[in-house]
Each structure stands twice: as structure tokens, then as C-alpha cells.
Simulated scan of single mutants.
Amino acid sequence: MSFVVVPASYVYLLRDSARGTEVLLQLRRGTPYMDGHWAAAAAGHVERGETAFAAAQREATEELGITGVDLAFEFTMQRTRGGEPIDERVDFFFTARAWQGEPRIVEPDKAGELRWCEVTDLPEPMVPHEAYALSRLGGTQRYLSHGFDNDLGGQR
């Protein structure tokens, strides 16, 4: 059985504080997917003819109103939910510690709040695969998987 893989890019803005590393998260509101859950402040599908890197830059501008985002590639995650072909995803995760402008909610119909959170103390509920991704930031793995019956927790 063949299926279509849906690619998406995620941007985690990071900053250092007296408490440790913080990540900027958005509360999803008014969306059909994981409404009411905390997620990356900027993320979205990679469009036809676009690289994952370019999609991350575009999403940061569209969703947060920032430019010049100094992206660092973290890892790729292959994920599914229930093993249904429509849910086969490949996600590209980036972090950034430098950008131009002040992050703000540009799409209020999709985001209810932006909040800086300690990476080690995330709000709940979190989008599950994103909580998993945040727990792996800064590691050496460049491939993770999530949601498969034979998942080894990304240890491949």
C-alpha cells in the first residue's frame, strides 16, 4: 500500500534565562488539530517546491512576524498516529537563538497565547510529538520516530 508523506517544519525559538533555557510556545486555538494544546510558536507544512529550511523561515514570519531567523537544524522525525497512511508525517525541527523583531501572534484565529517556558517544565497539555521533540533538543540524534508500534524511541 502506498501513501503520501506530509512534510512540515517546526521552529523553536530559544533564549537563556536565570532559570535555564526557555522555548517560545503557542497555545493552539481555533484549529482542527490539537486545539487547546501547546506547540511550537511557528510550524507548518512544507509547500510544493519549497525546502524545509525555507518553510521554517516563512512560518516564522507568517506566524510570529519575525525575520532573519538564524535557524539551526536539530533533527527529522518520522511519525504516525494509528498507522493510517494519511497520518504518515516527516517533520523537520529547527531551533533559533537570534532573529529580527519581537515575536507576536500574527494569526490570532489560530493562536490564543504565546509564552516563554522552561524546556524542562513544559505547560500541559502539549502536542505529544512536540513534547517528545523538545525532550530531545541538543542531543546528537538526527533521526527520531514517534507513534509506531515498533518505535525504539528514536534510538536508531
Rank of each mutant, 00 (worst) to 15 (best):
2 S>L: 15
2 S>F: 15
6 V>F: 05
8 A>R: 07
12 Y>P: 01
14 L>T: 07
15 R>G: 07
16 D>T: 10
19 R>Q: 13
21 T>H: 07
23 V>N: 04
24 L>M: 09
25 L>G: 15
31 T>K: 11
31 T>E: 07
33 Y>N: 04
33 Y>T: 03
36 G>M: 06
39 A>I: 01
45 H>D: 05
45 H>P: 08
48 R>A: 15
53 F>N: 02
53 F>W: 06
56 A>T: 03
57 Q>F: 02
60 A>R: 11
62 E>D: 11
62 E>R: 15
66 I>E: 02
70 D>F: 05
72 A>W: 05
73 F>L: 13
75 F>R: 03
75 F>C: 03
75 F>P: 11
83 G>L: 02
83 G>I: 00
85 P>F: 00
88 E>N: 09
88 E>H: 05
89 R>W: 10
92 F>K: 03
93 F>R: 00
98 A>Y: 04
101 G>K: 04
102 E>P: 02
102 E>Q: 06
103 P>W: 05
103 P>R: 03
104 R>P: 03
107 E>M: 08
112 G>H: 09
113 E>W: 04
114 L>C: 12
116 W>K: 13
116 W>H: 09
118 E>S: 13
121 D>V: 05
122 L>P: 02
124 E>A: 15
126 M>V: 12
126 M>K: 12
129 H>S: 11
131 A>S: 10
132 Y>V: 03
136 R>L: 10
138 G>T: 01
139 G>S: 09
140 T>A: 14
144 L>F: 02
146 H>M: 04
149 D>S: 15
151 D>I: 04
153 G>T: 01
154 G>A: 09
156 R>P: 00
